[in-house]
């Protein structure tokens, strides 16, 4: 047992942090609300640097890294509200598993693939659709890949590239793809939670900075417990979220039987943690926090959208509960072939 990342991973995250703070940022998120365009750093740059192909095997032109490394990068991407989401990249890597040719096209930036949620004939709003050239969709048990027509809706958070997708051409790339589809979605939940972790961490940091310097009644507002304790609670939650994200990301590669539960736990915990942190930040900032110019609402927008993407909190909480119960029941009945899914 060793519940910490290693030195190499720390350096890697540091490198990603520098990159995203130069190449992305809330400024882009604000601009995209007024004029259409790709989020920063955009799909091609992410591919060039190998960030979006982190979990694609080397043989298919990717980096061949574990999901934990992807989560570490996603955390840094989240701090800067970067897009497209690395959750989409990780999901695509799972969906196209074994398909070296197509994965190579993705790794080398020739195709940009988004995943369609809902029916391929007329989808629900789907992430990163606006910057995609191709789409993966589940039709019955078949996994389809094709081109499509995208109609954007009016965004709350424009960096998520949400659009309704209608496939205009498609071919079946995998049959009996249900299990793979589910696993891809779980992996995406982990990465989305990692992005939420980074964003929430940044939000708490902004709140702390402000609470140290802003004075009212002759004292910094951070001296007031009503302010201090709210920030502490958010900080504690972010720190706990990090534990869940790391566990879930680790599980994807090392304990796949724990992934469904861990992914749902991280996704559900992220939903409230990130949203609450944003609400605290806006409140602690006072009037300035309510302005269009301040970055606070851009994080808040991300939180309001991400909490619902890839399944809302209720769905994931129920998944955690039901999986825990069935694991416990299996353990009691002594059913073989199943290791304990829940370490409770």
């Amino acid at each position: 047992m060793n519940f910490d990342i290693d030195e190499e991973q720390r350096n890697f995250a540091e490198h990603a942090r520098d990159f995203f703070s130069e190449q992305a940022g809330p400024g882009t998120a604000r601009r995209l609300l007024d004029e259409a365009g790709d989020p920063a750093p955009g799909p091609r740059v992410l591919a060039e640097l190998g960030f979006s192909s982190l979990t694609i095997p080397e043989i298919a032109g990717g980096v061949g890294a574990e999901l934990l490394n992807m989560a570490l990068v996603a955390e840094q991407a989240g701090r800067q509200l970067a897009g497209p989401s690395l959750a989409t990249a990780a999901r695509v890597a799972v969906l196209l598993e074994g398909d070296e040719g197509r994965l190579r096209d993705v790794s080398e930036g020739r195709t940009v693939i988004a995943v369609v949620d809902g029916s391929p004939a007329g989808s629900s709003p789907s992430m990163d659709a606006l910057s995609a050239t191709h789409f993966l969709a589940l039709d019955g048990e078949d996994l389809l890949l094709g081109e499509g027509r995208v109609s954007p809706g009016e965004p709350i958070d424009a960096t998520r590239g949400l659009g309704f997708v209608e496939l205009t051409s498609s071919e079946v790339v995998c049959r009996d793809a249900r299990e793979r589809w589910e696993r891809a979605r779980q992996v995406a939940c982990v990465v989305l939670a990692a992005e939420g972790l980074g964003a929430a961490d940044r939000v708490v940091e902004l709140g702390i900075e402000h609470a140290r310097s802003r004075e009212t009644f002759g004292r910094p507002i951070g001296a007031y417990q009503a302010v201090k304790h709210r920030l502490v609670d958010d900080w504690v939650a972010v720190n706990q979220l990090r534990s869940l994200v790391w566990w879930a990301a680790w599980a994807a590669d090392h304990a796949p039987e724990q992934l469904p539960l861990a992914a749902s736990a991280a996704k559900a915990y992220c939903a409230t943690t990130f949203e609450t942190a944003c609400e605290t930040l806006i409140h602690v900032l006072g009037g300035i926090g309510f302005t269009w110019e301040h970055d606070a609402h851009l994080y808040w927008r991300r939180a309001k959208v991400d909490r619902l993407l890839l399944g809302d909190e209720s769905e994931h909480l129920a998944a955690v509960a039901l999986q825990s119960i069935s694991a416990a029941t299996r353990a009691v009945s002594g059913e073989t072939g199943t290791t304990e899914v829940v370490p409770v």
Partner: peptide, 28 residues
Amino acid sequence: RRLTIEALGRVLVESLAARYTGYRLQTS
């Protein structure tokens, strides 16, 4: 039952988060 399942999920997630955070602290 539906409400209880969600409430159970919430407790378990908090409990897992607390446990792994404690383990992380022990490692450090």
